[in-house]
Computed example of a mutant assay.
Amino acid sequence: MRIVAGEWRRHPLRAPAGDATRPTADRTRETLFSMLASRLGSFDGLAVADLFAGSGALGLEALSRGAASCLFVEQDAAALRVLRANIASLRAQARCNVHAGSATQIGPARQMLDLVLLDPPYGSGTGGVALDRMIRLGWIGPASWIALEVGAKEDARLPAFTIDAERKVGAARLVLARPNLD
């Protein structure tokens, strides 16, 4: 596993051992960020969150491409150790905030986010739960973008969002959405 593009292009990333974490494959990440780039134009200066962060590959990819900051949320102890090691290997600590806890229990917003990246366990429905909470607590605003990875055959139910694009990549389906906020 490696960073696909940007400042840290080709830099290797560690992944947690075992089956508890399923890192997003390089090809899937490349497809996701291509989809996002065509909509966002640039990642420069964005405030990003990587929920269900695991190794941190999604958030670190955004930082490599110019995002200003990333909030990483992960509850698994082994994944947290690898996530912190990956951040340290890139010397990215100043641009990262690691929250050890459940993405479905995140507290009130410290800032509104431009981009929320989610890769929850397939078939769990926890991505939608986390997003609903983030809207209620002020993390997500009208200009925010959501990128959700689900299983290829999974239905991504996001009632509070309008789906902008979906693409199947291997065993995953990538969903880009915008909030329905007035």
Rank of each mutant, 00 (worst) to 15 (best):
L51R: 00
G107I: 03
L46T: 08
V129F: 04
D76F: 04
I106C: 06
S69E: 13
D50S: 00
D19E: 14
L46F: 09
T126N: 12
I3L: 04
D44I: 07
S69G: 13
L113W: 00
R157I: 13
L118N: 00
E74P: 10
G18Y: 06
T31K: 06
F43L: 12
R84A: 13
F52V: 03
I135V: 15
S38F: 13
G141E: 13
L63V: 07
E149I: 01
G151R: 03
C70F: 08
R29K: 15
S64L: 07
M35E: 07
D50R: 03
E61M: 01
V73K: 03
F43T: 04
Q105A: 15
R2P: 01
I106M: 14
V73R: 08
A92F: 06
L174A: 00
E7G: 04
A143W: 10
K168H: 12
I163S: 02
S89H: 13
F161E: 10
Q111G: 08
L80Y: 02
L131I: 00
R22S: 12
V98F: 08
I87E: 10
L60W: 03
V73W: 05
L118F: 02
R157Y: 11
R9Q: 13
I163H: 02
A172W: 04
Q111E: 15
D182E: 15
V48H: 09
I3T: 08
V175D: 10
A5H: 08
D164A: 15
A147S: 06
R95T: 11
A25Y: 00
A20R: 14
N86K: 02
V129G: 03
R2Q: 07
A100C: 01
V73F: 05
I106W: 01
A68P: 07
F161V: 05
M35Q: 12
G107K: 05
D132A: 15
V4A: 09
I3D: 04
R2Y: 06
R157V: 14
L115T: 03
L158R: 07
Q93N: 10
L158Q: 01
A77R: 15
R39H: 13
S55L: 00
L176M: 09
T24R: 09
A152T: 02
L137H: 12
N180F: 00
V150S: 01
G41F: 11
A47L: 12
L131K: 04
P142Q: 14
L63T: 07
D182S: 14
A156C: 07
A53E: 02
V175R: 11
G101K: 09
A85E: 15
E154D: 13
T31G: 02
S69I: 03
A37G: 06
P142G: 11
L46M: 14
L148P: 01
H99P: 04
I140T: 03
Q93S: 14
P121H: 00
P159N: 12
R14F: 09
V73P: 05
R110K: 13
A160N: 13
T24H: 11
D119N: 13
W145N: 01
M112K: 12
W145D: 02
Y122I: 08
E74V: 10
M112T: 15
S64I: 05
R84T: 09
F72R: 12
S38Q: 14
D26Y: 09
M134A: 01
G41V: 04
G128W: 00
D26G: 02
A47T: 10
T24E: 11
D119Q: 05
